[in-house]
Write a protein that binds this DNA or RNA. Sequence first.
DNA 1: CTTTTTTTTGCATTTTTTTGCAAAGAATTT
DNA 2: AAATTCTTTGCAAAAAAATGCAAAAAAAAG
Lengths: 249, 249
Amino acid sequence: MIKEERQRLIIEKLNRDQKINLLELSQLLNVSYDSIRRDVIELEDKGLLKKVHGGAVANSYLSFKNTHNSSADQQEVVMLTRKAQKLFYNHQTILMDGGTTNFHIAEQFPKNLEMTVITNSLPLAAVLNEHPKIETILLGGTYHKRYQITIGNQVMKQLEHIRVDLYLMGFNGLDPEVGVTLRHYEESVLKQKMAQAAKKVAICAITEKLHTVETYKVCDLQDIDILITSLKPSDVTLNAFRQQGIELI
Amino acid sequence: MIKEERQRLIIEKLNRDQKINLLELSQLLNVSYDSIRRDVIELEDKGLLKKVHGGAVANSYLSFKNTHNSSADQQEVVMLTRKAQKLFYNHQTILMDGGTTNFHIAEQFPKNLEMTVITNSLPLAAVLNEHPKIETILLGGTYHKRYQITIGNQVMKQLEHIRVDLYLMGFNGLDPEVGVTLRHYEESVLKQKMAQAAKKVAICAITEKLHTVETYKVCDLQDIDILITSLKPSDVTLNAFRQQGIELI
DNA sequence: CTTTTTTTTGCATTTTTTTGCAAAGAATTT
DNA sequence: AAATTCTTTGCAAAAAAATGCAAAAAAAAG
Protein backbone atom coordinates (compact mmCIF):
# COMPACT_ATOMS: atom_id res chain seq x y z
CA MET A 1 0.00 0.00 0.00
CA ILE A 2 1.57 3.25 -1.08
CA LYS A 3 1.47 6.42 0.91
CA GLU A 4 -0.71 8.33 -1.51
CA GLU A 5 -3.40 5.69 -1.46
CA ARG A 6 -3.41 5.62 2.32
CA GLN A 7 -3.75 9.36 2.47
CA ARG A 8 -6.56 9.30 -0.03
CA LEU A 9 -8.38 6.71 2.06
CA ILE A 10 -7.83 8.81 5.17
CA ILE A 11 -9.41 11.84 3.54
CA GLU A 12 -12.30 9.76 2.27
CA LYS A 13 -12.99 8.28 5.66
CA LEU A 14 -12.69 11.70 7.20
CA ASN A 15 -15.28 13.12 4.84
CA ARG A 16 -17.63 10.29 5.69
CA ASP A 17 -17.24 10.21 9.44
CA GLN A 18 -16.09 13.77 10.19
CA LYS A 19 -13.42 12.29 12.43
CA ILE A 20 -10.84 9.54 12.41
CA ASN A 21 -9.05 7.63 15.10
CA LEU A 22 -5.39 6.86 14.49
CA LEU A 23 -5.28 3.49 16.22
CA GLU A 24 -8.43 2.26 14.54
CA LEU A 25 -7.14 3.44 11.19
CA SER A 26 -3.77 1.77 11.55
CA GLN A 27 -5.49 -1.55 12.21
CA LEU A 28 -7.90 -1.02 9.37
CA LEU A 29 -5.18 -0.25 6.82
CA ASN A 30 -2.82 -2.72 8.38
CA VAL A 31 0.13 -0.38 8.80
CA SER A 32 1.86 0.89 11.88
CA TYR A 33 0.47 3.61 14.03
CA ASP A 34 3.44 5.78 13.17
CA SER A 35 2.85 5.66 9.46
CA ILE A 36 -0.71 6.79 9.89
CA ARG A 37 0.40 9.51 12.22
CA ARG A 38 2.96 10.73 9.71
CA ASP A 39 0.34 10.71 6.99
CA VAL A 40 -1.92 12.80 9.11
CA ILE A 41 0.90 15.26 9.77
CA GLU A 42 1.47 15.62 6.03
CA LEU A 43 -2.22 16.09 5.37
CA GLU A 44 -2.38 18.72 8.05
CA ASP A 45 0.51 20.58 6.46
CA LYS A 46 -1.46 20.62 3.24
CA GLY A 47 -4.35 22.07 5.19
CA LEU A 48 -6.65 19.18 4.41
CA LEU A 49 -7.51 18.25 7.96
CA LYS A 50 -6.92 19.19 11.53
CA LYS A 51 -4.93 16.96 13.80
CA VAL A 52 -6.20 16.45 17.33
CA HIS A 53 -5.16 14.26 20.20
CA GLY A 54 -6.08 10.72 19.28
CA GLY A 55 -6.98 11.35 15.68
CA ALA A 56 -8.02 14.07 13.27
CA VAL A 57 -11.14 16.01 12.36
CA ALA A 58 -12.37 17.45 9.11
CA ASN A 59 -11.47 21.01 8.33
CA SER A 60 -14.83 22.68 8.49
CA TYR A 61 -14.25 25.17 5.72
CA LEU A 62 -13.49 22.45 3.20
CA SER A 63 -16.65 20.48 3.65
CA PHE A 64 -19.13 22.91 2.15
CA LYS A 65 -16.83 24.04 -0.58
CA ASN A 66 -16.90 20.67 -2.29
CA THR A 67 -19.85 21.73 -4.32
CA HIS A 68 -18.51 23.95 -7.02
CA ASN A 69 -14.78 23.37 -7.20
CA SER A 70 -12.64 20.47 -8.23
CA SER A 71 -10.38 19.06 -5.58
CA ALA A 72 -7.34 20.46 -7.35
CA ASP A 73 -8.89 23.92 -7.14
CA GLN A 74 -9.66 23.32 -3.51
CA GLN A 75 -6.08 22.57 -2.71
CA GLU A 76 -4.99 25.72 -4.49
CA VAL A 77 -7.44 27.78 -2.50
CA VAL A 78 -6.24 26.22 0.74
CA MET A 79 -2.65 26.98 -0.16
CA LEU A 80 -3.38 30.53 -1.22
CA THR A 81 -5.46 31.38 1.81
CA ARG A 82 -2.68 30.06 4.01
CA LYS A 83 -0.13 32.16 2.22
CA ALA A 84 -2.40 35.15 2.59
CA GLN A 85 -2.12 34.92 6.37
CA LYS A 86 1.30 36.54 6.10
CA LEU A 87 -0.41 39.82 5.36
CA PHE A 88 -1.98 40.16 8.76
CA TYR A 89 -0.51 41.53 11.94
CA ASN A 90 -1.89 42.53 15.28
CA HIS A 91 -3.36 46.00 15.65
CA GLN A 92 -3.89 46.49 11.94
CA THR A 93 -7.08 47.77 10.42
CA ILE A 94 -8.00 46.13 7.17
CA LEU A 95 -10.79 46.40 4.65
CA MET A 96 -12.24 43.26 3.10
CA ASP A 97 -15.13 42.93 0.71
CA GLY A 98 -17.18 39.92 -0.34
CA GLY A 99 -16.28 36.87 -2.35
CA THR A 100 -15.45 33.29 -1.49
CA THR A 101 -11.70 33.83 -1.40
CA ASN A 102 -11.92 36.53 1.23
CA PHE A 103 -14.33 34.36 3.12
CA HIS A 104 -11.88 31.49 3.25
CA ILE A 105 -9.03 33.77 4.22
CA ALA A 106 -11.03 35.12 7.13
CA GLU A 107 -11.92 31.61 8.21
CA GLN A 108 -8.27 30.81 8.60
CA PHE A 109 -7.29 33.85 10.61
CA PRO A 110 -5.34 32.76 13.68
CA LYS A 111 -7.62 32.70 16.69
CA ASN A 112 -5.41 35.10 18.61
CA LEU A 113 -5.14 37.70 15.86
CA GLU A 114 -6.05 41.12 17.19
CA MET A 115 -7.24 43.23 14.33
CA THR A 116 -10.03 45.46 13.12
CA VAL A 117 -11.83 44.33 10.00
CA ILE A 118 -14.10 46.67 8.07
CA THR A 119 -16.36 44.93 5.61
CA ASN A 120 -19.52 45.19 3.57
CA SER A 121 -19.99 41.42 3.48
CA LEU A 122 -22.44 39.76 5.84
CA PRO A 123 -21.01 36.24 5.57
CA LEU A 124 -17.62 37.67 6.43
CA ALA A 125 -19.00 39.34 9.55
CA ALA A 126 -20.60 36.03 10.49
CA VAL A 127 -17.34 34.16 10.11
CA LEU A 128 -15.48 36.70 12.20
CA ASN A 129 -17.85 35.84 15.00
CA GLU A 130 -15.55 32.89 15.60
CA HIS A 131 -12.59 35.18 16.19
CA PRO A 132 -13.12 36.86 19.54
CA LYS A 133 -10.18 39.22 19.23
CA ILE A 134 -11.18 40.68 15.90
CA GLU A 135 -13.32 43.78 15.96
CA THR A 136 -15.71 43.87 13.05
CA ILE A 137 -17.17 47.01 11.57
CA LEU A 138 -19.93 46.67 9.07
CA LEU A 139 -20.50 49.19 6.32
CA GLY A 140 -24.18 49.98 6.07
CA GLY A 141 -26.13 50.36 2.86
CA THR A 142 -28.56 48.70 0.54
CA TYR A 143 -28.34 44.98 0.96
CA HIS A 144 -27.63 43.04 -2.19
CA LYS A 145 -29.28 39.68 -1.63
CA ARG A 146 -27.41 37.65 -4.15
CA TYR A 147 -23.91 38.74 -3.20
CA GLN A 148 -24.83 39.23 0.45
CA ILE A 149 -23.05 42.55 0.65
CA THR A 150 -24.12 46.12 1.18
CA ILE A 151 -23.76 48.51 -1.73
CA GLY A 152 -24.83 51.97 -2.78
CA ASN A 153 -24.30 55.52 -1.85
CA GLN A 154 -24.30 55.03 1.87
CA VAL A 155 -21.39 52.63 1.71
CA MET A 156 -19.48 55.09 -0.45
CA LYS A 157 -20.05 57.86 2.03
CA GLN A 158 -18.82 55.86 4.97
CA LEU A 159 -15.70 54.98 3.04
CA GLU A 160 -14.84 58.66 2.76
CA HIS A 161 -14.16 58.79 6.47
CA ILE A 162 -12.05 55.68 6.53
CA ARG A 163 -8.34 55.07 6.14
CA VAL A 164 -7.06 51.52 6.55
CA ASP A 165 -3.70 49.76 6.39
CA LEU A 166 -4.70 47.19 3.84
CA TYR A 167 -7.52 46.42 1.45
CA LEU A 168 -7.98 42.81 0.46
CA MET A 169 -9.88 43.06 -2.79
CA GLY A 170 -12.08 40.36 -4.20
CA PHE A 171 -12.41 40.25 -7.97
CA ASN A 172 -13.41 38.15 -10.97
CA GLY A 173 -10.66 38.62 -13.53
CA LEU A 174 -7.00 39.61 -13.58
CA ASP A 175 -5.09 40.26 -16.76
CA PRO A 176 -1.60 41.73 -17.17
CA GLU A 177 -2.83 44.01 -19.96
CA VAL A 178 -6.28 45.04 -18.78
CA GLY A 179 -5.92 44.95 -15.01
CA VAL A 180 -8.55 43.90 -12.50
CA THR A 181 -12.08 43.35 -13.80
CA LEU A 182 -15.47 42.53 -12.37
CA ARG A 183 -18.86 41.24 -13.46
CA HIS A 184 -20.97 43.63 -11.46
CA TYR A 185 -20.94 47.33 -12.19
CA GLU A 186 -21.93 48.79 -8.86
CA GLU A 187 -19.38 46.73 -7.07
CA SER A 188 -16.60 47.82 -9.39
CA VAL A 189 -17.23 51.45 -8.49
CA LEU A 190 -17.32 50.54 -4.82
CA LYS A 191 -14.03 48.71 -5.04
CA GLN A 192 -12.38 51.73 -6.59
CA LYS A 193 -13.47 53.76 -3.61
CA MET A 194 -12.26 51.09 -1.24
CA ALA A 195 -8.87 51.03 -2.88
CA GLN A 196 -8.59 54.77 -2.33
CA ALA A 197 -9.29 54.32 1.35
CA ALA A 198 -6.36 51.94 1.82
CA LYS A 199 -2.62 52.41 2.09
CA LYS A 200 -2.04 49.14 0.29
CA VAL A 201 -4.19 46.94 -1.92
CA ALA A 202 -3.74 43.18 -2.02
CA ILE A 203 -5.44 40.57 -4.19
CA CYS A 204 -5.40 36.82 -3.96
CA ALA A 205 -5.64 35.17 -7.37
CA ILE A 206 -6.31 31.53 -8.05
CA THR A 207 -4.87 30.47 -11.37
CA GLU A 208 -8.33 30.23 -12.87
CA LYS A 209 -8.78 33.98 -12.58
CA LEU A 210 -5.52 34.89 -14.26
CA HIS A 211 -5.87 36.02 -17.86
CA THR A 212 -9.63 36.28 -17.59
CA VAL A 213 -11.28 39.58 -18.37
CA GLU A 214 -14.76 40.56 -17.21
CA THR A 215 -17.03 43.41 -18.22
CA TYR A 216 -16.22 46.16 -15.76
CA LYS A 217 -12.76 47.42 -14.98
CA VAL A 218 -11.87 48.13 -11.38
CA CYS A 219 -8.29 49.31 -11.65
CA ASP A 220 -4.95 48.92 -13.40
CA LEU A 221 -2.18 46.60 -12.40
CA GLN A 222 -0.21 49.47 -10.99
CA ASP A 223 -2.89 50.14 -8.39
CA ILE A 224 -2.24 46.72 -6.86
CA ASP A 225 0.49 46.52 -4.26
CA ILE A 226 0.51 42.86 -3.31
CA LEU A 227 -0.43 39.78 -5.31
CA ILE A 228 -0.83 36.35 -3.79
CA THR A 229 -0.56 33.60 -6.36
CA SER A 230 0.42 29.96 -6.64
CA LEU A 231 2.41 30.43 -9.83
CA LYS A 232 6.06 29.50 -9.63
CA PRO A 233 8.46 32.47 -9.42
CA SER A 234 9.84 31.43 -12.78
CA ASP A 235 6.50 31.74 -14.56
CA VAL A 236 6.63 34.28 -17.40
CA THR A 237 3.15 35.56 -16.54
CA LEU A 238 4.61 37.10 -13.45
CA ASN A 239 6.98 39.38 -15.34
CA ALA A 240 4.22 41.82 -16.12
CA PHE A 241 3.40 42.02 -12.43
CA ARG A 242 7.02 42.44 -11.46
CA GLN A 243 7.41 45.32 -13.87
CA GLN A 244 4.63 47.13 -12.05
CA GLY A 245 6.53 46.73 -8.79
CA ILE A 246 3.93 44.42 -7.33
CA GLU A 247 5.01 42.41 -4.33
CA LEU A 248 4.49 38.73 -5.02
CA ILE A 249 3.73 36.12 -2.40
CA MET B 1 -13.90 8.17 21.61
CA ILE B 2 -11.76 11.22 21.00
CA LYS B 3 -12.28 14.47 22.80
CA GLU B 4 -13.39 16.39 19.72
CA GLU B 5 -16.13 13.95 18.99
CA ARG B 6 -17.41 14.14 22.53
CA GLN B 7 -17.44 17.88 22.37
CA ARG B 8 -19.26 17.83 19.09
CA LEU B 9 -21.90 15.56 20.57
CA ILE B 10 -22.22 17.83 23.57
CA ILE B 11 -22.86 20.83 21.36
CA GLU B 12 -25.33 18.88 19.27
CA LYS B 13 -27.26 17.75 22.29
CA LEU B 14 -27.15 21.25 23.63
CA ASN B 15 -28.64 22.61 20.46
CA ARG B 16 -31.43 20.09 20.68
CA ASP B 17 -32.27 20.35 24.34
CA GLN B 18 -30.91 23.82 25.13
CA LYS B 19 -29.53 22.47 28.36
CA ILE B 20 -27.45 19.51 29.42
CA ASN B 21 -26.79 17.70 32.64
CA LEU B 22 -23.23 16.58 33.29
CA LEU B 23 -24.05 13.35 35.08
CA GLU B 24 -26.56 12.27 32.50
CA LEU B 25 -24.13 13.09 29.74
CA SER B 26 -21.25 11.18 31.28
CA GLN B 27 -23.42 8.08 31.45
CA LEU B 28 -24.66 8.58 27.94
CA LEU B 29 -21.20 8.93 26.45
CA ASN B 30 -19.74 6.40 28.82
CA VAL B 31 -16.92 8.53 30.17
CA SER B 32 -16.20 9.89 33.58
CA TYR B 33 -17.96 12.88 35.01
CA ASP B 34 -14.66 14.72 35.11
CA SER B 35 -13.97 14.34 31.43
CA ILE B 36 -17.33 15.77 30.56
CA ARG B 37 -16.80 18.62 32.93
CA ARG B 38 -13.42 19.39 31.41
CA ASP B 39 -14.97 19.33 27.97
CA VAL B 40 -17.62 21.74 29.08
CA ILE B 41 -14.95 24.04 30.51
CA GLU B 42 -13.12 24.01 27.18
CA LEU B 43 -16.29 24.67 25.26
CA GLU B 44 -17.08 27.53 27.55
CA ASP B 45 -13.66 29.01 26.90
CA LYS B 46 -14.44 28.86 23.23
CA GLY B 47 -17.67 30.68 23.97
CA LEU B 48 -19.85 27.87 22.68
CA LEU B 49 -21.91 27.40 25.80
CA LYS B 50 -22.40 28.65 29.29
CA LYS B 51 -21.59 26.54 32.30
CA VAL B 52 -24.13 26.46 35.09
CA HIS B 53 -24.37 24.52 38.30
CA GLY B 54 -24.77 20.89 37.38
CA GLY B 55 -24.61 21.31 33.64
CA ALA B 56 -24.53 23.83 30.82
CA VAL B 57 -26.92 25.88 28.72
CA ALA B 58 -26.79 27.09 25.16
CA ASN B 59 -24.98 30.35 24.85
CA SER B 60 -26.55 31.83 21.78
CA TYR B 61 -28.89 34.39 23.17
CA LEU B 62 -30.44 34.25 19.76
CA SER B 63 -30.74 30.56 19.09
CA PHE B 64 -33.35 31.16 16.50
CA LYS B 65 -34.16 27.81 15.09
CA ASN B 66 -34.91 25.99 18.29
CA THR B 67 -36.22 28.32 20.89
CA HIS B 68 -35.46 27.31 24.43
CA ASN B 69 -38.95 28.09 25.55
CA SER B 70 -41.67 25.68 26.45
CA SER B 71 -44.00 24.56 23.71
CA ALA B 72 -46.72 26.72 25.19
CA ASP B 73 -44.46 29.73 24.77
CA GLN B 74 -43.68 28.69 21.24
CA GLN B 75 -47.33 28.60 20.35
CA GLU B 76 -47.77 32.04 21.74
CA VAL B 77 -44.89 33.34 19.64
CA VAL B 78 -46.40 31.84 16.52
CA MET B 79 -49.75 33.44 17.26
CA LEU B 80 -48.25 36.81 18.01
CA THR B 81 -46.06 36.91 14.93
CA ARG B 82 -49.13 36.07 12.85
CA LYS B 83 -51.06 38.89 14.39
CA ALA B 84 -48.15 41.22 13.81
CA GLN B 85 -48.49 40.74 10.07
CA LYS B 86 -51.42 43.16 10.16
CA LEU B 87 -48.97 45.98 10.64
CA PHE B 88 -47.39 45.65 7.23
CA TYR B 89 -48.53 47.11 3.92
CA ASN B 90 -46.94 47.46 0.54
CA HIS B 91 -44.65 50.42 -0.09
CA GLN B 92 -44.03 51.05 3.57
CA THR B 93 -40.61 51.64 5.02
CA ILE B 94 -40.11 50.10 8.43
CA LEU B 95 -37.32 49.89 10.95
CA MET B 96 -36.65 46.62 12.78
CA ASP B 97 -33.92 45.80 15.24
CA GLY B 98 -32.62 42.50 16.60
CA GLY B 99 -34.21 39.93 18.86
CA THR B 100 -35.94 36.63 18.34
CA THR B 101 -39.43 38.06 18.09
CA ASN B 102 -38.57 40.37 15.21
CA PHE B 103 -36.75 37.53 13.56
CA HIS B 104 -39.84 35.34 13.67
CA ILE B 105 -42.06 38.13 12.44
CA ALA B 106 -39.80 38.70 9.44
CA GLU B 107 -39.78 34.98 8.73
CA GLN B 108 -43.53 35.09 8.31
CA PHE B 109 -43.76 38.08 6.01
CA PRO B 110 -45.95 37.28 3.00
CA LYS B 111 -43.79 36.44 0.00
CA ASN B 112 -45.38 39.14 -2.13
CA LEU B 113 -44.99 41.94 0.39
CA GLU B 114 -43.26 44.92 -1.19
CA MET B 115 -41.58 46.89 1.52
CA THR B 116 -38.34 48.49 2.59
CA VAL B 117 -36.84 47.20 5.82
CA ILE B 118 -34.08 49.08 7.56
CA THR B 119 -32.30 47.05 10.21
CA ASN B 120 -29.15 46.70 12.28
CA SER B 121 -29.59 42.96 12.69
CA LEU B 122 -27.62 40.56 10.52
CA PRO B 123 -29.84 37.53 11.07
CA LEU B 124 -32.79 39.66 10.04
CA ALA B 125 -31.08 40.68 6.82
CA ALA B 126 -30.31 37.02 6.19
CA VAL B 127 -33.94 36.03 6.65
CA LEU B 128 -35.14 38.76 4.33
CA ASN B 129 -33.05 37.14 1.64
CA GLU B 130 -35.99 34.79 1.25
CA HIS B 131 -38.30 37.67 0.41
CA PRO B 132 -37.39 38.92 -3.04
CA LYS B 133 -39.71 41.92 -2.99
CA ILE B 134 -38.40 43.37 0.23
CA GLU B 135 -35.58 45.83 -0.06
CA THR B 136 -33.23 45.57 2.87
CA ILE B 137 -31.04 48.38 4.11
CA LEU B 138 -28.44 47.59 6.66
CA LEU B 139 -27.25 50.10 9.20
CA GLY B 140 -23.47 50.01 9.42
CA GLY B 141 -21.46 50.18 12.61
CA THR B 142 -19.48 48.17 15.11
CA TYR B 143 -20.60 44.59 14.96
CA HIS B 144 -21.72 43.15 18.26
CA LYS B 145 -20.90 39.46 18.00
CA ARG B 146 -23.17 38.15 20.68
CA TYR B 147 -26.32 39.94 19.63
CA GLN B 148 -25.38 39.91 15.95
CA ILE B 149 -26.30 43.53 15.45
CA THR B 150 -24.42 46.69 14.62
CA ILE B 151 -24.18 49.32 17.32
CA GLY B 152 -22.29 52.48 18.08
CA ASN B 153 -21.96 55.99 16.86
CA GLN B 154 -22.09 55.20 13.19
CA VAL B 155 -25.50 53.59 13.50
CA MET B 156 -26.76 56.61 15.42
CA LYS B 157 -25.55 58.96 12.73
CA GLN B 158 -27.24 57.08 9.94
CA LEU B 159 -30.47 57.15 11.89
CA GLU B 160 -30.42 60.93 11.85
CA HIS B 161 -31.08 60.92 8.13
CA ILE B 162 -33.86 58.40 8.30
CA ARG B 163 -37.60 58.73 8.68
CA VAL B 164 -39.70 55.59 8.58
CA ASP B 165 -43.37 54.71 8.83
CA LEU B 166 -43.03 52.18 11.60
CA TYR B 167 -40.46 50.95 14.07
CA LEU B 168 -40.87 47.44 15.38
CA MET B 169 -38.94 47.48 18.60
CA GLY B 170 -37.44 44.45 20.28
CA PHE B 171 -37.11 44.58 24.06
CA ASN B 172 -36.63 42.55 27.22
CA GLY B 173 -39.15 43.85 29.69
CA LEU B 174 -42.45 45.72 29.59
CA ASP B 175 -44.11 47.06 32.69
CA PRO B 176 -47.15 49.34 32.94
CA GLU B 177 -45.38 51.48 35.53
CA VAL B 178 -41.79 51.56 34.33
CA GLY B 179 -42.22 51.26 30.57
CA VAL B 180 -39.93 49.40 28.19
CA THR B 181 -36.63 48.12 29.59
CA LEU B 182 -33.56 46.37 28.26
CA ARG B 183 -30.57 44.40 29.52
CA HIS B 184 -27.97 46.05 27.35
CA TYR B 185 -27.12 49.69 27.77
CA GLU B 186 -25.83 50.59 24.34
CA GLU B 187 -28.82 49.06 22.69
CA SER B 188 -31.22 50.97 24.89
CA VAL B 189 -29.74 54.26 23.70
CA LEU B 190 -29.90 53.07 20.12
CA LYS B 191 -33.53 52.11 20.43
CA GLN B 192 -34.39 55.56 21.73
CA LYS B 193 -32.88 57.03 18.60
CA MET B 194 -34.70 54.54 16.43
CA ALA B 195 -38.00 55.45 18.04
CA GLN B 196 -37.36 59.08 17.18
CA ALA B 197 -36.83 58.18 13.54
CA ALA B 198 -40.24 56.54 13.22
CA LYS B 199 -43.76 57.88 12.88
CA LYS B 200 -45.10 55.00 14.94
CA VAL B 201 -43.54 52.55 17.35
CA ALA B 202 -44.85 49.02 17.75
CA ILE B 203 -43.83 46.28 20.15
CA CYS B 204 -44.77 42.65 20.26
CA ALA B 205 -44.90 41.28 23.80
CA ILE B 206 -45.11 37.65 24.79
CA THR B 207 -46.74 37.25 28.15
CA GLU B 208 -43.43 36.30 29.74
CA LYS B 209 -42.09 39.77 29.13
CA LEU B 210 -45.02 41.59 30.67
CA HIS B 211 -44.37 42.89 34.17
CA THR B 212 -40.66 42.19 33.94
CA VAL B 213 -38.26 45.04 34.45
CA GLU B 214 -34.66 45.04 33.26
CA THR B 215 -31.76 47.34 34.04
CA TYR B 216 -31.93 49.99 31.35
CA LYS B 217 -34.98 51.97 30.44
CA VAL B 218 -35.70 52.59 26.79
CA CYS B 219 -38.89 54.63 26.89
CA ASP B 220 -42.20 55.19 28.64
CA LEU B 221 -45.46 53.53 27.78
CA GLN B 222 -46.69 56.68 26.13
CA ASP B 223 -43.96 56.46 23.51
CA ILE B 224 -45.42 53.20 22.26
CA ASP B 225 -48.15 53.45 19.65
CA ILE B 226 -49.05 49.84 19.02
CA LEU B 227 -48.87 46.81 21.27
CA ILE B 228 -49.31 43.26 20.07
CA THR B 229 -50.22 40.88 22.83
CA SER B 230 -52.04 37.63 23.37
CA LEU B 231 -53.82 38.79 26.50
CA LYS B 232 -57.58 38.73 26.34
CA PRO B 233 -59.19 42.16 25.84
CA SER B 234 -60.79 41.75 29.26
CA ASP B 235 -57.47 41.40 31.06
CA VAL B 236 -56.96 44.10 33.67
CA THR B 237 -53.29 44.47 32.78
CA LEU B 238 -54.35 46.07 29.54
CA ASN B 239 -56.08 48.98 31.21
CA ALA B 240 -52.81 50.76 31.81
CA PHE B 241 -51.98 50.47 28.14
CA ARG B 242 -55.43 51.65 27.07
CA GLN B 243 -55.09 54.71 29.25
CA GLN B 244 -51.98 55.68 27.32
CA GLY B 245 -53.93 55.50 24.07
CA ILE B 246 -51.97 52.50 22.83
CA GLU B 247 -53.53 50.56 20.00
CA LEU B 248 -53.92 46.92 20.98
CA ILE B 249 -53.79 44.02 18.62
C1' DC C 1 22.51 -5.26 -13.20
C1' DT C 2 24.70 -3.59 -9.19
C1' DT C 3 25.68 0.15 -6.10
C1' DT C 4 24.49 4.34 -3.96
C1' DT C 5 21.25 7.48 -2.34
C1' DT C 6 16.89 8.70 -0.77
C1' DT C 7 12.55 7.72 1.12
C1' DT C 8 9.62 5.15 3.88
C1' DT C 9 8.59 2.33 7.66
C1' DG C 10 8.58 0.28 12.26
C1' DC C 11 10.33 0.27 16.87
C1' DA C 12 11.97 1.92 21.46
C1' DT C 13 12.38 5.86 24.46
C1' DT C 14 11.03 10.18 26.23
C1' DT C 15 7.64 13.75 26.76
C1' DT C 16 3.13 15.43 26.76
C1' DT C 17 -1.78 15.07 27.13
C1' DT C 18 -5.74 13.01 28.78
C1' DT C 19 -8.32 10.60 32.02
C1' DG C 20 -10.32 8.92 36.33
C1' DC C 21 -10.16 9.13 41.22
C1' DA C 22 -10.33 10.96 45.87
C1' DA C 23 -10.39 14.52 49.15
C1' DA C 24 -11.44 19.13 50.21
C1' DG C 25 -14.11 23.16 49.36
C1' DA C 26 -18.55 25.77 47.51
C1' DA C 27 -22.95 26.19 46.44
C1' DT C 28 -27.70 24.76 46.77
C1' DT C 29 -31.51 22.64 48.92
C1' DT C 30 -34.21 21.09 52.75
C1' DA D 1 -27.61 24.53 60.07
C1' DA D 2 -27.29 19.98 58.12
C1' DA D 3 -27.44 17.35 54.12
C1' DT D 4 -26.90 16.97 49.46
C1' DT D 5 -25.05 17.98 45.24
C1' DC D 6 -21.69 19.88 42.43
C1' DT D 7 -16.80 22.00 41.84
C1' DT D 8 -12.20 22.38 42.42
C1' DT D 9 -7.68 20.65 43.08
C1' DG D 10 -3.85 17.60 43.08
C1' DC D 11 -2.25 13.29 41.73
C1' DA D 12 -1.15 8.98 39.44
C1' DA D 13 -2.17 5.79 35.76
C1' DA D 14 -3.06 5.35 31.01
C1' DA D 15 -3.06 6.85 26.37
C1' DA D 16 -1.10 9.15 22.76
C1' DA D 17 2.53 12.20 20.55
C1' DA D 18 7.16 13.39 19.50
C1' DT D 19 11.79 12.04 18.77
C1' DG D 20 15.75 9.52 17.34
C1' DC D 21 17.41 5.54 15.15
C1' DA D 22 17.97 1.58 12.21
C1' DA D 23 16.11 -1.67 8.91
C1' DA D 24 13.62 -2.14 4.66
C1' DA D 25 12.01 -0.56 0.37
C1' DA D 26 12.17 2.25 -3.57
C1' DA D 27 14.41 5.33 -6.72
C1' DA D 28 18.39 7.08 -8.94
C1' DA D 29 22.92 6.66 -10.58
C1' DG D 30 26.69 4.34 -12.30
